[in-house]
Simulated scan of single mutants.
Amino acid sequence: MRLSISSKLGIVIVASALVSFLPLPVRAQAVAPVSLSVDGSTACIDGEITPAVAADFAALAGRTGLKSVSLNSPGGRVFPALEIARAIKAAGLNTIVPSGSECHSACAFIFLAGRERIAQGKLGVHQVSGVDDPSLTQTAIGRIYEDLVTFNAPSYLVSRMLRTPPGDMYVFTPEELERNSINIRDASKAQSVPHLLPVETWLRQSWLVGVFVNTHTRQPFIALESNTMMPLLRIAHYPQRSQTFVEIMVPEGSISGTSTQLELRFAHGNDDPFSLFVNADIETNAYAFDFPTDPVAIQKFWAAFATGTQLTVLNSFGVEIGRYSLAGSRRALEDFFKVALR
């Protein structure tokens, strides 16, 4: 049985400010003058992304014989970057970040639009941010992520983007680039990857809260997710079905069986840890379980989650599955319930 969220769970709902997202800033450093050039069949973008660069690129995107775009940029303006990305997508061009180069922030949007895309250098992402244009709304933000879906941007990359504050930069390792379909070396063999389309998101220290749409099922859901992604812990609420459950995402094929018991061990400073035991279903890539049916147990779960300092999940053999900081969990829960009770 999936349990619906209700105010009787004892969580105080308070208003919280929505973080603005646009545009992505370049990193706080001196930025070299931008250059846009063509070397044989390759267009080269070197420097900050600006409206002028987008206009110049539009003029050459359809040039006969142009096959790829080489990138070396610390980022820049989101909308010009998306203009370039759409032109790359329409022309079927490939993108590359050469070894020794970087493609950070808004530049990553351009990279993702490539028919084939290979980052040999550094690819970095962070949250979309900025408050200099009051006309930029949450609807515009949703459109940005819709573009990422059309670029076949994997959910792993989008999740890392959402979890990285605007002042930081998450740079993918070579292993992450290959393992998570960020690099696409043969477009003819590339497969569509699962997508979660963010509609609204809030980052609360170690927890991400958001409203998402599964682009395959078109169903919206509210999620409270750990900043730790290996493995990811997600509390999901589907309002149209009044369902609320917990998932712990693990590599596909790493677990077997149909069900097991999990221990949720909550720590709070120097106090003795508090444990709840739940029966979880074993799926192809996740442990999944409902909240306890006992209202007292439900309240204990939320109270422990909101006030604890660390959550450790162990399997029936006492082996640790995942460990999660609970920093920011109280604020994240307030956001989660506020949205769920709209």
Rank of each mutant, 00 (worst) to 15 (best):
residue 300 K to H: 13
residue 64 T to V: 13
residue 239 P to A: 00
residue 214 N to C: 06
residue 200 E to W: 10
residue 96 I to Y: 15
residue 42 T to Y: 08
residue 11 I to V: 11
residue 125 V to A: 11
residue 301 F to Y: 12
residue 209 V to H: 13
residue 43 A to H: 04
residue 178 E to R: 11
residue 80 P to E: 01
residue 130 G to Y: 13
residue 332 A to N: 06
residue 61 A to G: 14
residue 272 D to P: 10
residue 134 P to H: 02
residue 100 G to N: 07
residue 221 F to G: 06
residue 173 T to W: 12
residue 280 A to F: 05
residue 72 N to E: 06
residue 49 I to D: 07
residue 173 T to P: 12
residue 215 T to H: 08
residue 47 G to M: 07
residue 198 P to R: 02
residue 210 G to Q: 08
residue 36 L to E: 10
residue 221 F to W: 00
residue 258 T to V: 10
residue 204 R to D: 10
residue 251 P to Q: 04
residue 157 L to W: 05
residue 49 I to N: 04
residue 242 S to V: 12
residue 217 T to A: 15
residue 339 V to L: 04
residue 21 F to K: 11
residue 299 Q to C: 07
residue 307 T to F: 14
residue 290 D to C: 07
residue 64 T to W: 13
residue 79 F to T: 10
residue 320 E to K: 05
residue 163 R to N: 11
residue 327 A to I: 10
residue 241 R to H: 15
residue 131 V to E: 09
residue 71 L to A: 12
residue 287 Y to L: 00
residue 34 V to R: 04
residue 264 L to S: 06
residue 247 E to D: 02
residue 101 S to D: 15
residue 303 A to G: 14
residue 280 A to M: 01
residue 246 V to L: 02
residue 136 L to I: 12
residue 198 P to I: 05
residue 126 H to Q: 01
residue 174 P to S: 01
residue 67 K to R: 14
residue 140 A to C: 08
residue 159 S to P: 02
residue 217 T to I: 14
residue 218 R to W: 15
residue 69 V to N: 02
residue 30 A to Y: 06
residue 24 L to F: 07
residue 57 F to H: 12
residue 301 F to A: 01
residue 241 R to Y: 13
residue 167 G to Y: 09
residue 52 A to D: 14
residue 86 R to F: 12
residue 174 P to L: 04
residue 144 I to G: 14
residue 11 I to S: 04
residue 33 P to K: 05
residue 21 F to D: 13
residue 100 G to W: 01
residue 78 V to C: 13
residue 1 M to I: 10
residue 38 V to G: 14
residue 229 M to F: 11
residue 202 W to Y: 13
residue 191 Q to T: 14
residue 92 G to Y: 08
residue 308 G to L: 00
residue 151 F to N: 01
residue 45 I to F: 08
residue 316 S to Y: 07
residue 223 A to K: 08
residue 34 V to L: 05
residue 14 V to T: 15
residue 12 V to I: 15
residue 83 E to D: 12
residue 80 P to L: 00
residue 259 S to R: 00
residue 150 T to W: 03
residue 133 D to T: 10
residue 127 Q to G: 07
residue 87 A to M: 06
residue 335 D to V: 10
residue 225 E to H: 08
residue 118 I to K: 01
residue 285 N to S: 08
residue 291 F to I: 04
residue 271 D to M: 13
residue 213 V to K: 03
residue 145 Y to P: 15
residue 248 I to M: 06
residue 230 M to Y: 15
residue 190 A to G: 12
residue 237 H to E: 09
residue 305 F to E: 01
residue 199 V to D: 07
residue 255 I to N: 02
residue 273 P to D: 11
residue 49 I to K: 06
residue 303 A to I: 14
residue 150 T to N: 03
residue 66 L to R: 11
residue 199 V to R: 07
residue 126 H to L: 02
residue 180 N to L: 03
residue 103 C to W: 02
residue 221 F to D: 00
residue 47 G to D: 08
residue 259 S to K: 05
residue 162 L to H: 00
residue 217 T to W: 10
